[in-house]
Design a binder for these strands. Structure first.
Length: 526
RNA sequence: GCGCCCGUAGCUCAACGGAUAGAGCGUCGGCCUCCGGAGCCGAAGGUUGGAGGUUCGAGUCCUCUCGGGCGCGCCA
């Protein structure tokens, strides 16, 4: 919301230097490094120096002298520094700051998508939080955005999982059976086995019926568990899509047909291949194995086809960085199917966990992991959520579990929430406030004002980078500015009470909006 | 060997190609008769892994190089 500066600079520059619209470079408006230098800085002199063959400081000076607008302008080196008039800020305050860039598109954010063969562990947590914040954000920016969990309830891992439950059932019934090395060893398998024995008269079931129970009930229990865990983390999925259904509804066959029709499929060595090298992949990929089974890749292509069929045209997938190799393949497939550029994969780097300097092994088979449930129980939902997004998705997180528990109070979430609590406290205490007439914003107030005023462009940046970290750091910066304002500027009883009260109110509104995006609680007291 | 991510303060990490590279944690020293001290102020701490290049300007872009992570199946 700095269009007034951009317009003014553009007009003035064109007039003074006789530049046409095409000759006019993009006007970049940034924060001054120090608020005492002004609210905004425009490095226009540097940009035009070559074209005009004039020194940057001369250009900036000339432009600054000829600027017209609700601000004071001053040239420093090649910069034009701009300080907005107090009444302009007051006007911005009365309008409010929450507005989003608007794009057209129906968005589906797919994330977590853990196999229903074990509990959700903290490694999944990062993707869960990143995905949910992105869905919240994109829902405000696009036509709408839905969250989806893809349940891999078909395939080899599930078969192994069911087998593991079955062995535990037999064990519970007194049989002397041994759990194979490659089976799932976690205690939860025993719990599921017990629960199934509670519900069914196991021995009276035929072998086929038994397998159906495992295949349906055991998997369903895992899915419910996943849902509960995610909801404890304020992660709500709108859609749970079953891989089995994708297969049953014939999507893989449709995908094969389409790829064949478009000339992207060929047979070799008894298998059906996708000519993905035509579309940027480094080698061709198998769609149907020589034994007739579909590859996971084919089913995934089919799944994405089905997403598009449901009407989504902006697909966002949040994947762990270990799936990097899958990205070019997926893009190649969607391009082949006629939907280029519709998928964006957000790669979330790994979270490595340490306990007293030793890396914590995360093995699902052996049942060794810290579950997300345990983490949430230990440090709380809000602290857990923030933990995963105080780093950009590109950065690996090194996370000391013991340290995090001990120093839970150092979590930035409390800094943010505390700022909001302080602000609300002022608002609730000033029911019969005086409407003072004094006007004039000091550096602490201006720092807060220009940050609030950056709401829309910060959200645009978050969308561009598809990174919740942008939102979290914005919330942190706002809180930082607020704490400093709070420390130095008294609101209640001040001669500036009216303007300051509005500032506090707008701050609270923006923060609550950010809390909603981030999925953390708005507190009245702490 | 190839592809992607990362390398910045003691540690964990920021910084749309812009001014004096910033926070948190840790260390040291200050601030409540005053809207909540879960806060604020200050000090110490840096050759942005290294070498070239691009340009008015490089932590950021390009090339090379060193170090760490992940991935390179008719697995999922």
């Amino acid at each position: 919301m700095t269009d007034v500066i951009r317009t003014s600079i553009t007009e003035s520059t064109q007039k003074v230097f006789g530049l046409s619209t095409e000759d006019m470079p993009a006007v970049d408006i940034q924060f001054t490094p120090d608020i005492t230098m002004g609210d905004y800085a425009v490095p226009i002199g540097f940009v035009l120096a070559k074209k005009l063959r004039t020194a940057p400081d001369r250009i900036a000076q000339t432009i600054a002298q000829n600027l017209q607008g609700p601000f004071r302008a001053e040239a420093v080196k090649g910069y034009v520094n701009v300080t907005m008039d107090d009444y302009w800020w007051l006007d911005r305050l009365s309008q409010g700051f929450i507005s989003y860039p608007q794009y057209s598109g129906k968005v589906l954010v797919e994330y977590v998508s853990a196999n229903p063969t074990g509990p959700i562990h903290i490694g999944h947590g990062r993707g869960a939080v990143v995905g949910s914040v992105l869905a919240n954000l994109l829902d405000r920016v696009y036509d709408f955005a839905d969250s989806e969990f893809y349940v891999n309830d078909a395939g080899e891992q599930i078969r192994k999982f069911c087998k593991s439950v079955e062995i535990r059932i037999r064990e519970l019934k007194g049989e002397d059976v041994e759990l194979p090395e490659d089976a799932y060893h976690g205690d939860y398998i025993v719990d599921i086995a017990k629960s199934i024995l509670d519900r069914y008269n196991w021995d009276t079931l035929s072998e086929e019926e038994q397998w159906n129970v495992l295949w349906n009930d055991a998997v369903d229990m895992m899915r419910k568990w996943h849902k509960e865990t995610l909801e404890k983390l304020s992660v709500t999925m709108k859609v749970w899509t079953s891989e089995r259904l994708i297969r049953q509804e014939g999507w893989p066959e449709r995908a094969i047909q389409l790829l064949q029709d478009k000339g992207y499929a060929y047979e070799k060595d008894g298998a059906l291949w996708f000519k993905s090298t035509l579309l940027g992949d480094d080698k061709d990929r198998v769609l149907v194995k020589s034994n007739g089974e579909y590859t996971y890749y084919l089913v995934d292509i089919a799944y994405h086809m089905e997403k598009i069929h449901r009407g989504y045209n902006v697909l966002v997938n949040v994947w762990g960085a270990d799936h990097i190799g899958h990205v070019p393949r997926m893009n190649a497939a969607l391009t082949a199917l006629g939907f280029p550029d519709c998928l964006t994969v957000v790669l979330v780097q790994t979270v490595r966990f340490w306990r007293q300097g030793v890396a914590v092994a995360m093995s699902k088979r052996k049942g060794e992991f810290l579950t997300l449930d345990e983490l949430i129980d230990e440090i709380g939902k809000d602290a857990a959520r923030i933990m995963f997004i105080t780093r950009s998705v590109d950065a690996t997180i090194d996370f000391d579990i013991e340290g995090a528990k001990q120093k839970a109070m150092d979590n930035p979430v409390y800094y943010i929430q505390y700022a909001c609590v302080r602000a609300k406290n002022i608002l609730t205490r000033t029911d019969e406030r005086q409407f003072g007439s004094s006007l004039g914003f000091d550096p602490h107030e201006r720092t807060l004002l220009r940050l609030l005023n950056a709401f829309q462009e910060r959200m645009a940046l978050a969308v561009r980078k598809l990174d919740p970290f942008v939102i979290e750091s914005y919330a942190w910066e706002l809180s930082d500015a607020f704490h400093k304002f709070y420390q130095f500027d008294r609101v209640i009883g001040s001669e500036y009470e009216n303007a300051r009260w509005q500032l506090v109110e707008r701050f609270t509104q923006v923060m609550e909006e950010l809390f909603t995006l981030l999925g953390i609680e708005k507190l009245e007291r702490m």
